Computed example of a mutant assay.
Amino acid sequence: MKRYLPLAALLVSACATEPAQDLYAIETAPIPAAVETAPMVGKGDKADDPAVWVNLANPAASLVLGTNKDAGLYVYNLAGEELQFLDVGRVNNVDLRGDLAVASNDETNSVSWFTIDSTTNTVSHIGDTPTNKDEPYGICAGLVGNTYYAMPTYKDGVAQVWAVATDAISDGPELLAEIQVGQYGQLQLEGCVFDEANGQVFVGEEEHGVWKLDLNDWTAAPVSVDTIDARNGLVADVEGMDIWAGENGEGYLVVSSQAADRFVVYDLKAPHAPRGVFTVVESLDGAIDAVTHTDGLDVNSAPLPGFPNGIVVVQDDGNPESGVDQNFKLVDWTLIQAALGLE
Results as ranks from 00 to 15, higher is better:
Lys2Thr: 10
Lys2Leu: 12
Arg3Ala: 15
Tyr4Trp: 06
Leu5Pro: 03
Leu5Ala: 06
Leu7Val: 12
Ala8Cys: 06
Ala9Thr: 10
Ala9Tyr: 08
Leu10Cys: 03
Leu10His: 04
Leu11Trp: 00
Leu11Phe: 03
Val12Asp: 11
Val12Ser: 13
Val12Ala: 10
Val12Trp: 06
Ser13Thr: 05
Ala14Pro: 01
Ala14Glu: 08
Cys15Phe: 08
Cys15Trp: 02
Cys15His: 03
Cys15Gly: 04
Cys15Lys: 09
Cys15Met: 12
Ala16Leu: 13
Ala16Pro: 00
Ala16Glu: 07
Thr17Ala: 15
Thr17Val: 11
Glu18Lys: 07
Glu18Pro: 03
Pro19Tyr: 01
Ala20Trp: 04
Ala20Lys: 12
Asp22Ala: 04
Asp22Pro: 03
Leu23Gly: 07
Tyr24Leu: 04
Tyr24Val: 00
Tyr24Ser: 04
Ala25His: 06
Ile26Lys: 14
Ile26Gln: 13
Ile26His: 01
Glu27Val: 03
Glu27Leu: 03
Thr28Glu: 04
Thr28Cys: 14
Ala29Asp: 00
Pro30Phe: 05
Pro30His: 04
Ile31Thr: 05
Pro32Asn: 01
Pro32Arg: 00
Ala33Tyr: 06
Ala33Gln: 01
Ala33Leu: 02
Ala34Pro: 02
Ala34Trp: 03
Val35Arg: 02
Val35His: 03
Val35Pro: 04
Glu36Leu: 09
Glu36Phe: 13
Glu36Ala: 12
Glu36His: 12
Thr37Ala: 09
Thr37Cys: 14
Ala38Glu: 15
Pro39Phe: 04
Met40Thr: 12
Met40Asn: 12
Val41Met: 13
Val41Lys: 13
Gly42Asn: 13
Gly42Thr: 06
Lys43Ile: 09
Lys43Tyr: 13
Gly44Pro: 01
Gly44Asp: 00
Asp45Trp: 15
Asp45Met: 03
Lys46Tyr: 08
Lys46Asn: 13
Ala47Gly: 15
Ala47Val: 14
Ala47Leu: 07
Asp48Arg: 11
Asp48Asn: 12
Asp49Arg: 02
Asp49Ile: 05
Pro50Thr: 07
Pro50Met: 11
Pro50Trp: 14
Pro50Lys: 00
Ala51His: 00
Val52Arg: 00
Val52Ile: 15
Trp53Pro: 10
Val54Asp: 02
Asn55Glu: 12
Asn55His: 15
Asn55Tyr: 04
Asn55Cys: 10
Leu56Tyr: 02
Leu56Ser: 15
Ala57Leu: 13
Ala57Thr: 10
Ala57Tyr: 05
Asn58Arg: 14
Asn58Leu: 11
Asn58Gly: 01
Asn58Ala: 15
Pro59Tyr: 08
